[in-house]
Design a protein around this nucleic acid. Sequence first.
DNA 1: TTTAGTTTATGAACATCGTTCAGTGAACAG
DNA 2: CTGTTCACTGAACGATGTTCATAAACTAAA
Lengths: 208, 208
Amino acid sequence: MDENQNPSPRARRKEDARERILQAARRIVLDEGFAALTMRRIAQQAGYSPAALYLHFECREAIARELGEAGMRSLHARLSEAGCEADPLARLRALSRAYVQFAREEPETYRLIFMEPGFAASALGGKDETGAAAFALLAGVFAELAAARRLRAGAQPESLATGLWVLLHGLASLKITCSAFLSAPEEELLAGMLDNLLHGVLRAAPES
Amino acid sequence: MDENQNPSPRARRKEDARERILQAARRIVLDEGFAALTMRRIAQQAGYSPAALYLHFECREAIARELGEAGMRSLHARLSEAGCEADPLARLRALSRAYVQFAREEPETYRLIFMEPGFAASALGGKDETGAAAFALLAGVFAELAAARRLRAGAQPESLATGLWVLLHGLASLKITCSAFLSAPEEELLAGMLDNLLHGVLRAAPES
DNA sequence: TTTAGTTTATGAACATCGTTCAGTGAACAG
DNA sequence: CTGTTCACTGAACGATGTTCATAAACTAAA
């Protein structure tokens, strides 16, 4: 089909409208939170009638889903940026910091991706390649450590990567829903947890 | 004031009504999920008119909050049951298993307590003693380990307890919102993560 | 340009949501 | 028995997601 090889003014304006609606929705989530993401509110912000949104999106959830996918791309970009550290241990710490930093700076986006029912399930479990790519960044660290024989016997890289994600998500989501509970600064908590993880997982005793 | 030292039939029936409403709400959350917790649905299930609920509760969120507190008591009870293990390491594993098991068996209750905005914050950060008691069960393990000098130098019991909660919550909540992502069985994942944690935290190398 | 057809946008409406309120009957106190 | 309080209801208000008939705007063919 016509991918983008002949952007007729029709299709162009339609794509513009879609993008403007998404932009309005993104702004609402950032400024007023996910709970404020209302069809009427989006329409008002985008300069449309509420009914007009249904010409470009199937339903409210479709908009939220697309917003979640964009958020996942944003998270992946941040992780990619942190993933250029050469040393795997430094990279692991950089990736972890970038992850919780994303959740801290855009809590409503993080909630939309990972804490609302029906989004994360399709984003990570389904065919979304961005989620898989983000996970691969974490898995790469442990794969590299395993290749260098720096993991203790019996440690499986994939399980470790999953465990790291569990840890990061636990910290990020608890900070969002239950910030009063995490008494210590999360950066400090994160550093301590990573230290524990590495102490338990690495073969030798690498300083830092 | 009159705590319960003169249960006039008036107050008794009022308390009964409250309890019946809560019971109906609990059933709805368990059977149809938290999203289905509607005032009209609760009223119908309890045999009341929707408006009648406001004679016993301030608003929908008040009902949900009370349900969340009851859920927290239930979680605390489960943890208490698992907390009678004498050996601290075995107790840690039992507590962890009980935690994720609760989240697996009552995911909607767990979501209500820890994943919805405005509940966990008040339950754990505020003056809710049940949440603090539940956390104390985890902290007790590490306090005991510290007293027996089985923790590695520099390991702070309180931080370790928080870290364990982070880990458990990460596993429980990812299982709920993103079950497709956790490929390995969660029991297996939990065991591996606990092993890593202990390997990194304990002084000697205790088998099992 | 005129005409026919498709696309885009709207306003009104429906069902459902949380919540409020005037009114109704029953249970209580004197 | 009487007057008052209490538990409860039906109807309503505003807001939600969504649909539909209708109108305006743009596109393509005559």
